[in-house]
Each structure stands twice: as structure tokens, then as C-alpha cells.
């Protein structure tokens, strides 16, 4: 079982967002960066599947500036075998990034290529499915269950009001949602071992593509609300406001 995990570096979800000068990106000053939370489900799935198979290789791949190397090391510390840094600037056009990743994964002999279902910064939600399409591989997005048996995968994914079930042959591409597993934390031993694991750097040039970010702004503040009252005694006043003023009941 050979598995690739495509990884992104994102701000911690507790980070307060400040818009940088220029108005198209965030001010990274003081912002803590972490592996994209959804990618951790992909990392955990890869490690667990290899453990279960008893053989194989797990590889983590990330496209971006040198800052992504720290994120790749975290994946190695969690238990991934090998890292590849596709060194170059990612495009605002997700299809161009998908092309760069697909070019690397193609011919790598992978049984599975895993992604997080989205990155919690740009919410692009497209790279995984695009890579699958470019590689002409089966794909399911935002999976919450994955079982592999006899060269086939069975997956589940959440849809509105239910859980969709699907199957496909391997090799395949999946993007992973919360609920798939509980990602392990890097152990001290894992952090030490990560320093000795293979770490390849491959320069890539990503085309600019057909997308330009025109602006990034903070959303309008909500108008200040008010405390209606205390305890159950305030419920009639609240109901009055919801029924007559806001007209939402």
C-alpha cells in the first residue's frame, strides 16, 4: 500500500484575521501556522492503513514556499515515512496547483492519494477532486469512512440529510472530513525520528492561471445586540422581539 498525502499549511483556527497592506492577503505577523486540520485526517488515515497492511510507504507532499517544510516535518513526526516539498509559489487558481501536484503524483505508483476536504484559509475545496480528474482516477470528496479490501475502497460521505455510500477500485483519490478518524499527536520519539526521514525538495513552477484575488476584507461587523433580560422571566420579551420585530418566528 503506497499512499500520498497532499498537505497545506494554514493559520491556526483560533487566529484572529488581520488584513495585510495591499488588501489581498492576511497579515501573518504573530499568526501561528499549523498543518491544515482536515489534512490531519488524511495523514492519520495513511499511517493507519499502512500499519494495517503491514507494508508500504506513506509520502507527504506539499506545494509552496519554504515555510511549508515545518508543516511537512510535523507530518513526518506523526508517522509519515517521507516528505516531498514542491518548492514554488502556489497560484490563486486551484487548477494550476492541482496540475503541479498531479504531475508529481503521476507515475508514483500510489494506491491512494489523500487530501483534506478543504484548507481552512482560502476554502478553495477543489484541489483533490481536480487532481483525481487530471489523473483520471476515481474520487470521493469529504469522506467520513474508508474501508479498503481486495483492491477496492468503500467510502461514506455526508450529504444534506444523510450519508452517501460509494465504492471504487484503487488507485483512487479521496478528500477527508472530520469524523474519518482521530489524528494522533506527534510523539517525542516521532519528532526525533522525523529528523532522519527522507526529505526531498523539488523546485516547481506553477502557472499564474485564470484567477486573480482582487481584494480581501473583513466582513461587516454585526450591529451591537442587547441583553433582553435574565432567566426564564425574559422569555416573553424575547418572543415579542422575535415574532414582532425580527419576524423570524
Amino acid at each position: 500500500m503506497k499512499i500520498a498525502v497532499c498537505l497545506r499549511r494554514t493559520p491556526d483556527t483560533t487566529a484572529k484575521i488581520v488584513i495585510a497592506a495591499g488588501g489581498t492577503s492576511i497579515d501573518e505577523t504573530g499568526v501561528k501556522f499549523v498543518p491544515n486540520p482536515y489534512d490531519e485526517y488524511a495523514i492519520e488515515a495513511a499511517i493507519a492503513l499502512k500499519e494495517k497492511a503491514g507494508a508500504g510507504e506513506t509520502v507527504v507532499v506539499a506545494l509552496g514556499a519554504d515555510s511549508v517544510q515545518e508543516t511537512l516535518r510535523t507530518a513526518l513526526a506523526m508517522g509519515i515515512d517521507r516528505a516531498v516539498h514542491l518548492q514554488g509559489n502556489a497560484s490563486a487558481d486551484g487548477l494550476e496547483n492541482a496540475r503541479a501536484l498531479a504531475d508529481h503524483v503521476r507515475g508514483g505508483g500510489y494506491d491512494l492519494v489523500l487530501f483534506g476536504k478543504l484548507a481552512v484559509d482560502d476554502y478553495g475545496q477543489q484541489t483533490g477532486a481536480m487532481v483525481a480528474e487530471l489523473l483520471e482516477l476515481p474520487c470521493a470528496t469529504a469522506i467520513t469512512m474508508l474501508e479498503i479490501a481486495d483492491g477496492r475502497a468503500t467510502v461514506e460521505r455526508e450529504v444534506e440529510g444523510g450519508v452517501e455510500q460509494a465504492t471504487c477500485a484503487l488507485p483512487a483519490v479521496f478528500t477527508c472530513d472530520k469524523g474519518l478518524n482521530n489524528p494522533r499527536l506527534p510523539s517525542l520519539k516521532g519528532i526525533m525520528a522525523a529528523r532522519k526521514k527522507p526529505f526531498d525538495i523539488a523546485p516547481v513552477t506553477v502557472a499564474a492561471g485564470a484567477v486573480t484575488v482582487a481584494s480581501l476584507v473583513l466582513p461587516p461587523e454585526r450591529a451591537a445586540g442587547r441583553i433582553v433580560g435574565e432567566g426564564a422571566a425574559a422569555v416573553p420579551a424575547l418572543m415579542q422581539l422575535l415574532v414582532s420585530d425580527a419576524k423570524v418566528i
Binding site: G94, A98, T127, G128, M130, A132, E133, T141
Partner: peptide, 23 residues
């Protein structure tokens, strides 16, 4: 941009060589 639409959009985009914007 439902669960299904978000699954579909990037596949279409990659197939027809077009950029994709979600949500």
C-alpha cells in the same frame, strides 16, 4: 454549493480546463 455541488464543481473545472470558485 451543496455537498454534491461542491463535489461536482472541481471535477467539471478540471475536465474543461476552467477555473473554479466555491461557496
Amino acid at each position: 454549493a451543496s455537498a454534491t455541488g461542491k463535489d461536482l464543481a472541481p471535477r467539471i473545472a478540471a475536465r474543461i480546463n476552467a477555473p473554479c470558485a466555491m461557496d
